[in-house]
Design a binder for these strands. Sequence first.
DNA 1: TCTGGGGTCCTAGGACCC
DNA 2: TCTGGGGTCCTAGGACCC
Length: 395
Amino acid sequence: MKNSLRKAKVILHVDMNSFFASVEQAYDSSLKGLPLAIAGNPQHRRGILVTCTYEARAFGVYTTMTVGEARRLCPDLVIIPPDFEKYRRASSQVFEILRSYTELVEPVSIDEAYMDITSIGGLTNAENIAKEIQQHLLDTLDLPCSIGIGPNKFLAKTASDMKKPLGITILRKRQMPEILWPKPVIHMHGVGKSTEKKLAELNIFTIGNLANADEITVKMKLGKNGVRLKERANGIDHREVDPEAANERKSVGSSTTLPTDETDLSACLKIFEWLAEKVAFRLERQKLAGTVIMIQIRTADWQNITRSKTVLNPLVKSEHIYKEAKSLFERHWDGEPIRLLGITISNVLPTEQLFEQLSIDNFEVHAKDEKIDGLISALNKELGTDMIKRGNQLD
DNA sequence: TCTGGGGTCCTAGGACCC
DNA sequence: TCTGGGGTCCTAGGACCC
């Protein structure tokens, strides 16, 4: 009852087409029309394609394919290493244009955003607005996108996937049975290989099967995710477009696949030193600090092991991050050959906010580590006060 | 097809407190 | 000595997405 009273929303999902490759083509028009792929470390034996143009896809090339395989299928494939700085700049220009239509823009990734345009016009007018946005991005940034239109995020997102590149698609709730229900359940966003398998055990193979499945059964098999997926299959999705969502970053991490599988401790520690610097650099740039450190070890046989620790004082500096990573690694590595190493800092907060909390609480820092003294004086300097002092050693 | 690197959210058990 | 229930935090792992 409440739902039928609620005014129908109009949500857009804007999805940039092969974004990284398109940005490169916008910068260098000689790349236009070519089979082009972006691949990290093309010389690296373990390189994969991050994205590729539709010209490349015509050869059977696709994203996540190895560089070697792609070259075999398409000998003329042009491969460029990624330039994330460039893509981030292009991305903020895209979002800026989207925000010129409404403040209700929620970036979901570097090349995707939801927009709530309910206040600008109804579902029929939405198509014109979408066309205008698409043309605007093409004219000013030379970047193509597909736009999905629907009464909620799920339908808008599903719609934007239906026509690429440069598509505009409306998906109404009442079209679910006809358009989505016949499709295999793996086509749904939120359903991967593992969920597909579990659903198959319940004799659920199509989105329609899921939409009409018994809720209790699905919940027992998949938990609340199952309930949510069933709702989505029925075209129900109450998530709001939240412009702030992207500002609330939860973690910052860095990982790397090693050129060859590694069994040497000091070589691994060198990698951790480098990762710690990378993470510290990015934390600093984003003015964040966090109290949970996690290391990831991927063994040669593709086993993923994570070990984490919660620390008292928020981590920002590379020496501190390295020290914690090192001790976690030394404590937990059993000598298995290693394929990948990573460090992630989570539970992060803006450093500004940390200072506020500290000054409000007249905070006493409890610590056993002498290095903390330096951090404390740095904080006091920042605050221009003497408020933060060392507490007693763990009372 | 031998598989990158950046994330988010969820689950589940154990510790600890009331 | 055995009996509870609820809440929160920590840790590890899994699934999924771009």
